[in-house]
């Protein structure tokens, strides 16, 4: 069991923790925070693997994940602010699509 194994298990743990959060929380804001946790998990995995192999691709992937996370946070928070007026941020209340 190398250090990389432990780090990968931890990264998977981060991802699963975030997934649990998305599935368990009803508040949209908390689900966004959980989503951040979910994204952090793979980021750790990429960096750890890149460091293990002495390769720069890990960091490059992290940059891409970061870009994704930034866009997601921006949109997610905008949606949250938009919905909060109607539902108080409860994602369960928003079950219908409406143009």
């Amino acid at each position: 069991m190398t250090a990389l194994n432990i780090l990968l298990v931890l990264s998977a743990g981060l991802f699963l923790a975030g997934l649990f959060g998305v599935a368990a929380r009803r508040t949209l804001l908390m689900q966004l925070i959980s989503l951040e946790v979910m994204l952090a998990g793979p980021a750790l995995g990429f960096i750890a693997a890149g460091a293990h192999h002495g390769s720069i691709e890990g960091s490059a992937m992290f940059i891409l994940v970061l870009g994704l996370a930034a866009a997601e946070v921006a949109l997610g928070l905008a949606i949250y602010l938009h919905m909060r007026r109607a539902t108080g941020g409860d994602s369960d209340a928003a079950t219908r699509l409406r143009g």
């Binding site: 997934l19 649990f20 998305v22 599935a23 368990a24 929380r25 009803r26 949209l28 689900q31 994602s91 369960d92 928003a94 079950t95 219908r96 699509l97």
Partner: peptide
Amino acid sequence: QSGRLRDYALGFALGL
């Protein structure tokens, strides 16, 4: 098809 985000996340977790 509840339309609830949580349920879809749960399905996603189950599949994973």
